[in-house]
Design a protein around this nucleic acid. Structure first.
Lengths: 137, 137
DNA sequence: TATACAATCTCCAGTCACTGGAGGATCAAG
DNA sequence: CTTGATCCTCCAGTGACTGGAGATTGTATA
């Protein structure tokens, strides 16, 4: 059998706190882990991937309900197709906005970094870059 | 004089709760608002932009310390240029990763949405898309 | 085999970033 | 001059963790 991972290994490989992994199990984001005879949790690479997904999604600003909905797309491949597509499309809209804002912010920061390289004071449009995406002006 | 905004106007125009605006003032993310004779806070369009920036940045997953550091780039245009450029470059690295992950997620979701359109069951690679960006495999 | 020390367990209290409500003052319309 | 919306301060509650106490187990070394 391929070797199972201890909770500490999973934590190290995903940059997650051990307590946080137990917390995700408690709220049902991760399945209940298999236990050794003495009661310690063990994991496999599917758990590793799932946890990595959760962590990255959190860093991208997705809430836990949103992550649940994204995971559901993976968990139930045989689910109602139209429903899955609708969920995917909702997220797609949101993700498009996030990408656009990040790209605007990136170009503002690039301006700061490069105009500083020349020794001049940066014209700092950081706020303008990301503030105004959908405000008039 | 151009008309000043009430806290409720600011809240409506940025999709922020009134209490949250007061909270941002308390922790120094927003400057102390000017008050009317009776003690009500008033704002201008600079405050509006700053708050919109803060809210968007939060939705993108930036922590409040990170937002402070981004705002500092705007707040101190005459600050040490090399320092500002260094801060900008740190954020640029992080933002590149975020954009890449969002784009991978977007293409996974697009697959779900379009393969469902054909009436077939989606091959759901949502987790794989975003889980594995820097894990070996 | 003994022992020490790292990792795990459960349970519970604390933190960060809000969110909502009580109780009271103020403003704008009718 | 009343009525309802909006504002004020203060404080308690929520979501998503984070850290610590106290006890148990696993493993590496003497």
């Amino acid at each position: 059998m391929t070797k199972r991972l201890a909770i500490g290994d999973l934590a190290r490989q995903t940059g997650t706190k051990v307590n946080t992994i137990r917390f995700y199990e408690e709220i049902g984001l991760l399945p209940e882990a298999l236990r050794t005879a003495s009661g310690r949790r063990t994991y496999d690479t599917a758990d590793l991937r799932r946890l990595a997904f959760i962590r990255h999604a959190r860093q991208l600003g997705f809430s836990i309900p949103e992550i649940r909905s994204l995971l559901a797309l993976s968990d139930q491949p045989d689910r109602d197709c139209a429903e899955a597509a609708a969920i995917a499309r909702e997220h797609l809209h949101d993700i498009g906005i996030r990408i656009a804002r990040l790209e605007t912010l990136r170009s503002a920061l690039t301006d700061v970094a490069t105009s500083c390289e020349g020794g001049r004071v940066a014209e700092c449009r950081v706020i303008e870059a990301i503030a105004g995406t959908e405000l008039a002006l």
